[in-house]
């Protein structure tokens, strides 16, 4: 399941980061690495960004970036 399909208000563990190039690099630099715990906080209106909590900060991700993050159950 990708972050895009994740249920809001739920904890997950990151399984893998797909994608390539800048977007992936930035995700890695922001702390989206395998085995990190992540909390899906919500979704913006108009199918907009996904809001997640990672390492204590709130991060908004656009759908295309969210779709590259594969999640698993905690």
């Amino acid at each position: 399941m990708t972050l895009l399909d994740a249920a809001p208000q739920t904890h997950y563990v990151i399984r893998s980061i797909a994608g390539e190039g800048f977007a992936r690099r930035r995700l890695l630099d922001m702390g989206f690495v395998k085995k990190s715990r992540i909390f899906v906080a919500g979704r913006a209106p108009f199918c907009g960004a996904v809001l997640v909590s990672l390492r204590g900060s709130l991060i908004a991700l656009r759908a295309d970036a969210a779709a590259t993050i594969e999640l698993g159950a905690v």
Partner: peptide, 22 residues
């Protein structure tokens, strides 16, 4: 743990609500 998830605050739950935000 310092990696405690940051849940949305009560204010954010209203302000960032899908339908109320705009």
């Amino acid at each position: 743990s310092p990696y405690q998830p940051r849940y949305l605050s009560a204010l954010d739950r209203i302000v960032l609500n899908k339908y109320l935000a705009l």
